[in-house]
Write a protein that binds this DNA or RNA. Structure first.
Length: 645
RNA sequence: GCGCCCGUAGCUCAGCUGGAUAGAGCGUCUGACUACGAAUCAGAAGGCCGUAGGUUCGAAUCCUGCCGGGCGUACCA
């Protein structure tokens, strides 16, 4: 569709350029609100009329004859207040779409795109909020890959931060555990830490004197002194492995895991620090509240300065983030070392190290960087970008994109279901923020377990002939599909107030609905083969071998065929729009609408039972085309495609 | 205070750079399965798009004020 529209635009532009002051940007081709009005709509006469001080309808009527030979257009007419509507030649259009299915529409635009997502503090189990982050980041990655871009997925590990210090404190000082004791802990380590962390948080509230011990732990971790450093590393690595396992359940993986410990070890900050000082991006405050701190002056905020280096000489989180961002663009002149951390489907996931370990691929050095981080960190992300700007890296600043999204919150009702107690005051609120400290939250694995369990029961009911490992696999696929669709269906600026009933639903606008539609199509092809020995062939081969006319279909069926196929043909525009606006709810809705149209078609028109061979062939082509499109879109959203369900 | 975001059907939400009669799902009510799988489909009811102005041929969409709600604004991350 994108290619066809481009062709149309060019043709229209050339037909009209001599007579009308039509600008390229005005020449948009949109869709009619209703099928009976035509297929494509040209709104430009409305704008043009204004500039030329003419009546829109009259102008449109004058233009129509000049557009008599547009390719693939069967009829053209003036509509509404002055639109020019195009009716396409359906058969030609369909064949054109079929033929272009395998062709590349998009061109890569960047040398390398880096996406940073997931970024869970390695001190507790992942929760639903982290799932939203990872699903958004992963979906963006899939779409950019589809576009042909070179994509690198980074999952930043803050393995030396305060949160890890807290858990280290909990194990060492509260539980009096040694390294060996911690190693011996069985079961889900991230869950263990989830509970421990809430106990630590309340302990620390009651014991402010523990602060000095915490500072000691932090210092020892950063300096690599034992046993604190070793214990902290054990904790963060074990939790990290648990996080990767969780993400693997929903088919999310990474290329590299850059660690804060390596940023410290490789002295990224020292380098960034001297750059910032050199360029005057930060300056030392010699009086007032921020005396002794190195600060950055903020744009757009009057009289505001952000502390980058504390008065005790230590760097804040933002400072390290600026250094990391510089590294991502290859601007730091220092690099990490790496070692393999784990294998995922035969692919190695590398983790950064501060000392050379073994030959490794190179990472970083991107030309465009997406940071998938929730909207609460907009302020900090802005400072990072400003850091780049004030160092003179204007292009990189422009290409540092904060992919922001709203949080996943909890309704008082879902907290009740979790058995978590909340205050009467909180109960009055519409939603409550997830809190690691209070242990308020839905753990990712718990949610996935429940989804799988529910899916398994359904699969058992319907597929008793399948072996149980097959049923397990299908249940997992359904759970993944349900979860991923749920995370994508909301616009990113919308707070998801988590509700179990809604998240666990497999009916209506859900992932399983989409999967079910595809299963239906596949099932038709399976039966065609079983009952009639039908051999599947490439759709473009089929359509070129047989010369069949749409006229074989009844008028109503032609309309229904067209409604389905014409909508399906818009998939690449939806991908483009989603990537451009970082709004994958578009893609989700598109897939859902397509399935709705397909399911309606499915109920109306039988394929296996159809006697007329021509009609049957046309219907097979139709659903095969829908399958091609749906398969692509589902895989871009990371929704698995079970063979049966 | 300042900055960002949100307010659309009973509930949960879509609505792209302004376009033609505002759409889904859930819930409610009516119907459709000895099958191409009912995890589905057909249909009904349900909306002053928070509010008041402005820009425009045209506003849920853009601008301004107001009302309601959220988040951020740390020598935390």
């Amino acid at each position: 569709m994108i290619r066809y529209k481009a062709k149309l635009k060019e043709k229209i532009r050339r037909s009209l350029m001599d007579r009308y002051p039509l600008k390229e940007s005005q020449l948009e081709i949109s869709y009619t609100p209703q099928a009976k009005m035509g297929d494509l709509a040209l709104p430009f006469p409305l704008q043009l009329a204004k500039e030329m001080k003419r009546q829109p309808r009259e102008l449109a009527a004058e233009i129509v004859p000049l557009l008599s030979d547009l390719p693939g257009v069967a009829k053209i007419e003036v509509a509404g207040p002055g639109f020019i509507n195009l009716f396409l030649n359906r058969q030609d259009f369909f064949l054109l779409q079929v033929a272009s299915l395998e062709k590349r529409t998009f061109q890569p635009e960047e040398k390398k795109i880096i996406i940073e997502h997931t970024n869970i503090n390695p001190n507790k189990a992942a929760h639903v909020g982290h799932l939203r982050n990872a699903v958004l980041g992963d979906t963006l990655g899939r779409c950019l890959l589809y576009k042909g871009e070179n994509v690198e997925i980074q999952n930043y590990i803050d393995d030396t931060g305060i949160q890890v210090v807290d858990v280290t404190f909990g194990f060492m000082d509260m539980e009096k555990k040694t390294l060996e004791d911690i190693q011996k802990i069985e079961g889900k380590f991230d869950y263990y830490c989830w509970d421990l962390y809430t106990r630590i948080s309340s302990y620390l509230e009651d014991h402010p004197e523990a602060q000095s011990r915490k500072s000691e732990i932090l210092r020892k971790i950063e300096k690599g002194e034992q046993p604190e450093a070793e214990i902290a590393e054990l904790i963060s690595r074990r939790i990290l492995r648990a996080h990767l396992e969780t993400m693997k359940r929903i088919d999310i993986s990474y290329d590299v895991l850059p660690c804060e410990s390596s940023i410290l070890g490789r002295k990224f900050w020292d380098k960034a620090y001297s750059l910032l000082k050199e360029k005057g991006a930060i300056y030392l405050v010699d009086e007032g509240l921020n005396k002794g701190c190195w600060v950055m002056k903020l744009e757009d905020y009057e009289e505001r300065e952000k502390i980058i280096v504390r008065s005790d000489g230590t760097v804040t989180y933002v400072g390290k983030d600026i250094a990391y961002q510089l590294w991502k663009f290859g601007l730091l002149e220092i690099d990490f070392f790496y070692e393999p951390f784990t294998e995922d489907n035969g692919k190695t996931i590398w983790i950064s190290t501060a000392v050379p370990k073994e030959p490794a691929p190179t990472f970083g050095d991107g030309t465009l960087v997406y940071n998938v981080i929730d909207t609460r960190q907009s302020y900090l992300q802005k400072i990072v970008v400003q850091g780049l700007k004030s160092l003179g890296f204007l292009d990189q600043a422009k290409k540092s994109i904060h992919y922001s999204y709203e949080m996943v919150a909890l309704s008082p009702k879902s907290l009740d279901e979790l058995g978590q107690k909340i205050s009467a005051e909180d109960r009055e609120r519409d939603f409550l923020e997830v809190s690691g400290r209070k242990g308020l939250g839905v753990k990712a694995d718990d949610l996935l377990d429940r989804l799988e369990q529910k899916a398994f029961l359904e699969v058992e009911k319907r597929n008793q002939d399948l072996p149980s490992d097959q049923r397990r696999l299908i249940a997992r696929q359904i759970a993944t599909g349900a979860l991923r669709y749920f995370m994508l269906k909301f616009a990113r600026n919308s707070i998801i107030v988590f509700d179990f009933e809604e998240a666990l639903s497999f009916e209506g606008e859900t992932g399983p609905y989409l999967q079910y539609s595809l299963v239906r199509i596949n099932s038709i092809f399976r039966k065609l083969k079983e009952r009639e020995g039908y051999e599947e062939k490439d759709l473009s081969t089929l359509t070129s071998e047989q010369n069949i006319s749409l006229d074989a279909l009844s008028e109503q069926e032609q309309e229904d065929f067209w409604g389905l196929v014409f909508y399906a043909s818009q998939f690449e525009e939806e991908i483009q729009l989603s990537v451009r606006s970082l709004e994958f709810s578009h893609l989700a809705k598109f897939a859902f609408n397509l399935c709705q149209k397909f399911n309606a078609y499915y109920h109306k028109y039988s394929i296996l039972a159809e006697k007329d061979k021509t009609i049957k062939s046309l219907r097979i082509w139709t659903i095969q085309y829908v399958r091609e499109v749906l398969t692509k879109v589902l895989s871009l959203m990371g929704i698995p495609q079970p063979a049966r369900m």
